[in-house]
Nucleic acid binder design. Structure first.
Lengths: 243, 243
DNA sequence: CGGTATATTGACCGTATTCAATCTCGGTGG
DNA sequence: CCACCGAGATTGAATACGGTCAATATACCG
């Protein structure tokens, strides 16, 4: 559902090597050169984040684009009264910060849920590269358009689907994203609280918990805390098929 | 809520002149030249649509970008079982078709609700212009980023707001869009059925109807069919302020 | 060890959906 | 010209889904 990827990552023992499926790889690796994570262009900075640490906050001027190299982040929109809504979750290869291009300031908060490592490329640098190579500009347009398409898809989910459909759909979505990056398609870690998941899906955390318990009771999935194992994918999919 | 506009339109008697607030004006009017609607660049085609006519359909290969010159359109995502969800409504100056850049095929249907006139610029032509003038490419990125931001905002609405908040918010949103184009901020035509409005807001048409009746009874608005007049803007806004 | 954040589960309630009846308005054709 | 028809809209009543409130359990961390 998030930024399209071209090929699955080959993940090293550290679990960090994501360059081959990174949304920004064309900015990092000039075509013709091999993808050598060690030979990082000088313009790309690595940044580490502790759990709970902010990558950027709403209102801050945008200075960079970010790609997730390792870890798990959320972006969320602060609401009145201290509440906030989760807009997206980001895993390795995903891109952050593209909603700020138009206004020049970030429209959302980006927070690490994990120990994260992100690659950062400054906007200035990206602009310069796109001016020199118009193919890069076209690639950036494609990335942006993909984010529009993703957002529209999620609007459909929020506008038309029941609680159980949303939860089932999200599990399948996450599974697909992990498997697209070379991980098991049937077993993964949610990396988020029920509350965050509910906020993302437009549900309360109690409802999320109930749905997960329901799916577990019906032996469609197995849950242990935040670890999920899909036991009956077809059952989950048939939930979504129902209009 | 939709594509940002720079300045209000000065609308001629025909109600069609929208160039001064058109999202594509930088592609039409090379900077330095005045905005003369008569001196239309050869690359830009005008296209007229009858009510109900499709501008494009999901799955069709994308060949152009469109800007609305007059009339009212919706874009919607077809769902299983003949149902569909309205993703956006478009009025003059708005841009259509940007979600197809990544995949090369349209992800949604675009349908005229009105007699419409749109300006069409082919993708090829747009690409060529962006390669020649990188400032145009940056502008296009800004337009795309704006659409991302709009979609995220709408996700918040769908994920967190009650029925009455959604309807009130939508009325204010529409009013703002019309007034931004030089029309009355307090009196306008919905141009859509209750059903379409409900689909857009993630509600049933009965609920939409009830909310409109409620607002009318409380003298916050006056409704006559699809004509709306805002009588107590503060009341509507205070609905939204409540977390 | 206690304290806090997270999660599960139950009972109750309220909002929005569903189903249904009625009304209005336009368009068509007898 | 008017009767008829169908789409859209309004309104009511019953229902169900998800939210709210509350109690308890579990895990993590200082």
């Amino acid at each position: 559902m998030n930024a399209a990827i071209a090929q699955p990552a080959i993940c090293s023992a550290t679990g960090q090597v994501a360059c081959s499926c990174c949304a920004l790889r064309r900015f990092c690796a000039p075509p013709g050169l091999g993808l050598d994570p060690a030979a990082l262009p000088a313009e790309v900075r690595r940044r580490r984040l502790r759990p709970g640490e902010y990558l950027y906050s709403r209102g801050a001027p945008q200075s960079s684009l970010y790609a997730v190299r390792a870890g798990f982040l959320k972006s969320c929109a602060p609401l009145s009264g201290g509440r906030s809504q989760v807009l997206a979750f980001h895993i390795m290869g995903d891109l952050l910060g593209l909603d700020a291009l138009a206004s020049g300031t970030h429209r959302s908060d980006a927070v690490a849920l994990n120990a994260c490592e992100v690659c950062e490329i400054t906007l200035d640098q990206a602009e310069r590269m796109m001016q020199e190579r118009t193919a890069l500009a076209a690639h950036m347009r494609s990335l942006l358009s993909g984010q529009v398409a993703d957002a529209l898809e999620r609007m459909v989910a929020l506008g038309t689907m029941s609680a159980r459909q949303r939860v089932a759909g999200y599990i399948l979505d996450l599974a697909g994203r992990w498997s697209g990056r070379g991980y098991s398609p049937n077993e993964f870690d949610l990396c988020m609280t029920r509350k965050e998941m509910g906020s993302y899906l437009g549900l309360t955390f109690e409802t999320v918990s109930r749905m997960l318990s329901l799916f577990d009771a019906r032996e469609w999935i197995a849950i242990d805390g935040r670890k999920v194992r899909i036991r009956d994918r077809a059952a989950l999919q048939s939930l979504l098929a129902a209009a």
